[in-house]
Write a protein that binds this DNA or RNA. Sequence first.
DNA 1: CCCGCACTGTGGTCTGACCACAGTGGTCAG
DNA 2: CTGACCACTGTGGTCAGACCACAGTGCGGG
Lengths: 236, 236
Amino acid sequence: MPAPRAYTAILAWLEDQLRTGVISVGEKLPGERHLAEQFEISRASVREAIRVLDAMGLVRSATGSGPSAGAVVISEPSTALAWALRMHIATQALPIGDIVEARLLLETQAALESEKRPDSPERRRILEEAAQLLDEMDTPGLPADRFHESDAQFHILLTSLAGNVVVETMMASLREATIGYVQETVSGLESWPEVSCTLQEQHRGVLQAVRERRGEDAAEALRHHITWFYGLSDHR
Amino acid sequence: MPAPRAYTAILAWLEDQLRTGVISVGEKLPGERHLAEQFEISRASVREAIRVLDAMGLVRSATGSGPSAGAVVISEPSTALAWALRMHIATQALPIGDIVEARLLLETQAALESEKRPDSPERRRILEEAAQLLDEMDTPGLPADRFHESDAQFHILLTSLAGNVVVETMMASLREATIGYVQETVSGLESWPEVSCTLQEQHRGVLQAVRERRGEDAAEALRHHITWFYGLSDHR
DNA sequence: CCCGCACTGTGGTCTGACCACAGTGGTCAG
DNA sequence: CTGACCACTGTGGTCAGACCACAGTGCGGG
């Protein structure tokens, strides 16, 4: 019993409320002052709990009044995980190489899995959106950061075809967390136009393989695509 | 420009300090009062930042005085991620089925990868430890929760053989986050002694395959092991 | 020499206050 | 009656200052 912090009461309470379905995504939490009274802790402690929930992507709080104000339960694990990942990468506890490898693993397996998924409007919509993204990325003179953002989005879309929310979330987190490093690498590259062109060719190859349900081909193309690009950086 | 919260200054500062190596794991942060003065924010805001970092597994703070007191930079992503995962599972945004599938994916791929890793004292130590865990789990009358804890530890150890910290971390998080659900499922099982016996047989089979570098066999055994056990629950 | 206790600085918590913000509802001019 | 306007109210965001428990530190007495 080493010091159960005051705010943990709220976290435990929320978890229970969520599990039992009393509160679900989209609903509002009671006001901070109300929670403080209810748990007999200070508002400062309540706020610490809210901060933690916010950092986890479980809650979004807004000022003002009316229905849109207050702490609303959301579920955005990927942005929160991405943030946490970035910080842990900064500590150098998580080597970039391992990140890339993990990402490769998730993405190739997702490609293999998506091969087996039945056709659906959802699937067609995703493929369509992915194709559009690629087209946008062909825009001449597109800023590198826009390119990378669309690039990340493209990969996440492909992963989502596997239909596994958890895998998709992990992919999104890894991607968002590393996008800064990607930009850093590329900014030191003189041959960016050629590189982006090659990347686009690879993207189209992957998309084509996925569309035609050639899972093995897609996975292999992804592997080549990712390792090739990662090889451009100096990994110091 | 929508309201940059006061405490984000500290988060950004810490990330920078970590990336540039000014601060690294194991070192202490300045005191809360000092940080408050340095960033010209209130101590309450500083504490919110520390809370967030704490929730992310980046910092551990302790009371008292001397070198052991204060906020120390650590790097324990797995416990933090596990906590976040559990909460998001509670919101039902992350279906258990997807969690199990993701875990299966990571673990089988890790088994395939570990096949290729060279021998090393590290590897031998891990295999030894895994074997010991299995022996402990054979103890008659072992409480179910102890069994599951060792079980989780066993799987994480196997995953660590692949030598990828990120994959290992994700596995550990998934495992820790779901352990509660596992216990819930098992507690409604009357044939637990038989089940645990079967699980142990499967564990030994997996360990044997890994030890002998039969990656495919290990992966297949893991797949069977996990899907079989997951099949015992009713997935409502 | 060693034991014990006051001292000091740390995080943990609380109180009470003020601010900016955004809906709400009333008022008043047209 | 209709519309624009504005004070009101409740929300989160921030702050200042205080007190507590805790754990090392170091001085003092035995």
